[in-house]
Each structure stands twice: as structure tokens, then as C-alpha cells.
Design a protein around this nucleic acid. Sequence first.
DNA 1: GCTCGTCAAGAGCAGTGCTCTCGGTTTTGA
DNA 2: TCAAAACCGAGAGCACTGCTCTTGACGAGC
Lengths: 230, 230
Amino acid sequence: MVAHSLRARVRAGMIDEIKAVARRHLATDGANLSLRAVARDMGMVSSAIYRYFPSRDDLLTALILEAYEALGDAVEAADAGVDQADLRGRWHAVCRAARAWALAHPAEYALLYGSPVPGYAAPEDTVAPAQRPPVTLVGILRDGVAGGRIDASGEELPEPLRSDVAELAALLAVDLPPALLARGMAGWTQLFGLISFELFGRINKTLPHRDEYFDHQTALMADLIGLPAA
Amino acid sequence: MVAHSLRARVRAGMIDEIKAVARRHLATDGANLSLRAVARDMGMVSSAIYRYFPSRDDLLTALILEAYEALGDAVEAADAGVDQADLRGRWHAVCRAARAWALAHPAEYALLYGSPVPGYAAPEDTVAPAQRPPVTLVGILRDGVAGGRIDASGEELPEPLRSDVAELAALLAVDLPPALLARGMAGWTQLFGLISFELFGRINKTLPHRDEYFDHQTALMADLIGLPAA
DNA sequence: GCTCGTCAAGAGCAGTGCTCTCGGTTTTGA
DNA sequence: TCAAAACCGAGAGCACTGCTCTTGACGAGC
């Protein structure tokens, strides 16, 4: 099967090269990725690309998937690199990792979290990788509750909401008090908003010390969630 | 000047009709607005549009400006419709108004707060209307401090950040303790994140009671900011 | 009445995603 | 081993896009 493997290998290499060139175009020209430009860059004709990706959207989907995985890797690695008992340290590490990845790959971040492309619907494959960052965050909460370092027994959600959030907790397979999960979701929402504001240029120009601002804002959310200091 | 006024009037009407048709296209087809399709809808030829808008980006800019104004109107009206002493009520009213406008005009919201169009740079005219919602929010804080209903004297920001935020307060012409303004900005960031998550389909399907979820999340932020109950 | 500015229309250019066909190569299976 | 099948790149072509330029008609002001 060397022959078959050889053909498959050059094909896989071709796919990788197309994705690499496309990612380069994405970084420079923004979200409007041109198949013809990618083909031109590779010394090919545009129709040849269709041997490897049935449509432009499929190429985009492949890039999106890889971007989700890269972000998930960065976030989980940051979480694993901190003393697991230091909940607040993990929280900040995860937030910083997500922001750093977004700043390093703005176009890909926009692809993931920007306004959805009109005709494009994300396939089912993307939902699992997309949930890795929030799952990492709720993992911090889970460990905190399990270790007794987060006390969430005092708060109760009003009823239509409580069962919704409880169902979400069951879906995520984490045993968390709904009120605490809701606070965690607030933190995740805030993290996304912070990064998006900074990346999409809506942060006010009068904020030169962006790192400090980011850390302070995420610290506020850590307070809101109830993460204890190390 | 009746004659000239007449000519100017039909021209203004033409501009309004183009914008109306474009807005309709925006609502149905999403962000990729086609000048030719707009012209076709009006029984015109595409080149005729260029008599009124020098480019597609200029049309988009006009739509963006109007959208900012509409959102600003909705937000400020909601704020004005509540007893000004009820800070928390004003906060919730503003949040709900922003969300309602976004849900009613998803494509325009995406235009304002989605990922920026690659080649497009928002002109200077848009920054003032864009600041109306956050300015409305800090207005609530200003009133709270002035009325003694918000006590923000206890918190101090660390130094590189404190002067940044203080400068921002000066730029917004509000006399707020930096720490409080930072909390307000967290609320604004959270509001944007909440709406974007819901609109861009990232909110988990297992959350049928979205109104309750939204209210609860914004209430969390009201707590964080320190808004007193009515 | 004449001139000038404004207007809609049309042709045309460069670019896009995508389809189809045509040869040539490689892999496969009898 | 050798033909059949699968695969591949190139090219032409379709419908579409934003945009420019020219042409001819219309209306307002001197």
C-alpha cells in the first residue's frame, strides 16, 4: 500500500498547503478569503482547489476547526500550567491565554467569534471544539466546589432560570450549583466581550496599559464568581 | 429657491429610498450588501446609485450611522422612561432596550458590533453616536455618585491603570472615581457580550428562557457595579 | 433660447465562486 | 500484465460583484 499511501500523502500535503496559504491570506487580507487568490499563490488554477475542498465554505470550516483547536489547546495548556489548587491563578491564566491567542490571530478570532457569515452555517463538528474554553472555565469552578474552596450553597436562582441552567450543567456533565454556573457564564461572556472590544477596535484609545486593564477586568469577574485568592 | 429646493428634495428622497432598500436587503441577506441588487430593486441601473453614494462603503457608513443613532435613541429613551432615582431600574431598562433593539435589527447590530469589515475603516463621524450607549450607562453612575446612592470611595485602582481610567473619565466629561468607572466598563462589556452571544447563536440551545437569563446576568453586573436596589 | 449641471443608462473592466469538459497520470483489480 | 477506474490540473465559461467612463436626455438659471 505504499503507492496508495503515497498518493494519499501528497493529497494530505496539498490540503495542508492550501490551508496554510489560506490562513496566510486570512491574516493579511481579512475575512474575505479568495479561493482564486489562494490558487494563484500556489501556482494553480482556481478549479484545481475544488479537488480538495468542495467549496469555499468547506475551506473556511476547516480553518475554523483548526482555529478552535488551537485556541482550545492554548487555553487548556495555560490552565494545566498553574497549580490546580490556585483557582484564581488558573482563571487568570486561562483568560490571558485566550486573549494572547486572539491578539496573535485576530483574523481567526474574528472568524470564530465575529459576526457570522450570512450564508454560512457552522457544521456540527465545530460545537465540541468551540466549547473547550468555557468547559475549561467551568472546570475551575468544579474543582473549587469539589475542594470546598468555593461556597455556592447560599444562592438560589429563581425558577424558570434554575432548571435551564441546571440542564446546561447536566449537558456539560459538571455537578455545579446553578447559581455558580450562571456566574461562571457571566465570566465567560465578559472574557469574550473584553477580547472582542480590544480586537475590534472599540476599546478607547485612552487606555495604553491594556494588559493591566484586562487583568483588572478579569479580576473583577473573579470576584463576582467568588474565586478565592491563592 | 423653490426649484433648487425641489431638485434637492427629490435627491434627498432618492437617498432615503436607497437607504431603505439597502436596509431591507441587509435584514434579509445579511452583511454582504449588493449595490446591484439594491439598484435592481429600485428599477435602476447599478451605476445610477453612484450618483448618490460614491461607493458601497459610503452607503454602508450611512447605514451604520443611522443604526448607531437608532440604538442611541432607544437606549436613551429607555433611560429617560424610568424614575431617575431608581439607578438599578435605569440600568435594567438600558440593558433591555439595547438587547431589544439588537434582536429587532440583528443585521444592523452585526454591522455595528460584529467583526470589522477588512477593507473598511469607520470614519470619524461614527465615534460620537457609537458612544451614546456607554455614555448613557456612565450617566447612571454619575447620578448615583452625585446623589450619594453609590459609595465608591473605598476602592482604589493600582497606578498605571488609575490614571488611564481617570483620563477616560475626563474624556467622557464625567467626574467618577476611576474604580467605579472601571466597574461600569465591565458592565458595558458584559452587556455587549451577552447580546452578541445571543445574537450570534453561541448561547447554548438549552436556555429557553432567554429573557430571564439576560435579566439575571445584567443583575449580576448591577451587583458588581454596586447599584442599589430601588 | 442657451448653457451648464444633473441624471439614468449602457458598455466595459477586473475580480469572484463555481461547474464542466478535456487530456494526462496514477492506482487498482482481474 | 494490462485494461479499467479513479484522480488530477488546466482551461473555458456562467453568473455575479464593485466600479469607471461615455453617451444622451432632462431641467434649472442667466
